[in-house]
Simulated scan of single mutants.
Amino acid sequence: MTDELAEDRERFGERMRALREAAGISGRALARRLGWSQSKVSTIERGRKVPLGPDIRAWCQATGMPLVESDLCAVAANLRTEIHHEQDRLRSEAITAAKPLKGTTERPLQHVREKGQVITAQKPR
């Protein structure tokens, strides 16, 4: 993931946290109100997960901030689109790297994604 995309996700999470804090609600209390785990609230606030519209709507209602729902939904939709494009780009790069060069007899390469990095190894025979 690009640094810019990671920063955008973090900023979105910070906006969600700011709504909760402005309402004077702890993360644990918000999770209870919504019927979620506390880790889901934390994951959203840290920008590790971009919530879908229904979750944003519930968050805004629980924090008494329904007027920002449409803006947050639009930002989240844009983020999910960017994340999807980035995932497609990474997949494309991995496929391109796996194609053998014309005229070579090397075994096909196996690619494994680990923490956003592509690791390449020869497939066993």
Rank of each mutant, 00 (worst) to 15 (best):
G47C: 05
H84W: 11
S70R: 15
Q110T: 07
R32A: 13
E10Q: 15
D55T: 07
Q117N: 04
P108C: 00
G47D: 02
D88I: 07
A76Y: 03
A58P: 03
H85P: 05
L30A: 14
R17T: 07
V41T: 10
G24R: 12
R113Y: 14
K115P: 08
G27R: 04
A74I: 06
E82K: 10
Q117H: 06
E93W: 09
G47I: 04
P51S: 01
E21C: 11
R125G: 14
E10M: 12
R17L: 12
T105M: 01
K49G: 14
R33E: 09
A94Q: 13
P100K: 05
I119Y: 09
D88M: 10
I119D: 08
P100L: 01
L5C: 04
P51L: 00
E82F: 03
T120E: 02
A62T: 05
R57I: 07
R89P: 04
E114F: 15
F12I: 01
C73Q: 12
H84F: 05
K102L: 10
V41L: 02
E86S: 04
K49H: 15
E7T: 10
P108M: 00
R15K: 10
S92G: 05
A121V: 08
T104K: 01
R9W: 09
M16C: 09
L19H: 03
R80S: 04
E14N: 11
R46A: 12
R20K: 00
G116P: 01
Q122I: 01
T63N: 01
A6Y: 03
R48Y: 14
W36C: 03
M1H: 11
K123C: 07
T63D: 00
A74P: 08
R57W: 07
S39G: 09
A74V: 03
G116A: 01
P66H: 02
L109E: 11
E10G: 13
R48L: 08
Q117G: 02
A62R: 09
E21R: 10
A29V: 15
I56C: 01
E93A: 14
R91E: 10
S70N: 14
W36A: 05
A94R: 09
E7D: 11
G35S: 04
S26T: 15
K99H: 08
T104M: 00
A76F: 03
T105N: 06
D3N: 11
D3K: 12
L79Y: 06
P108S: 00
R28T: 15
H85T: 05
V112K: 08
R20N: 05
N78S: 08
I44D: 02
A22F: 03
V41M: 03
T120D: 07
Q122H: 10
A22E: 15
H84G: 06
D8N: 12
M16I: 01
P100Y: 01
L90R: 13
Q122S: 12
R9V: 00
S26G: 15
S42N: 04
A18L: 06
T43V: 10
P66N: 02
Q110S: 14
I95R: 11
T105K: 00
R32Y: 06
P54M: 00
I25S: 15
S37W: 03
E114A: 13
R113G: 12
A6N: 11
M1S: 13
A94H: 11
G24N: 13
C73H: 12
K40S: 08
G24V: 02
S70I: 04
A23R: 07
S70L: 07
T2M: 02
T81M: 12
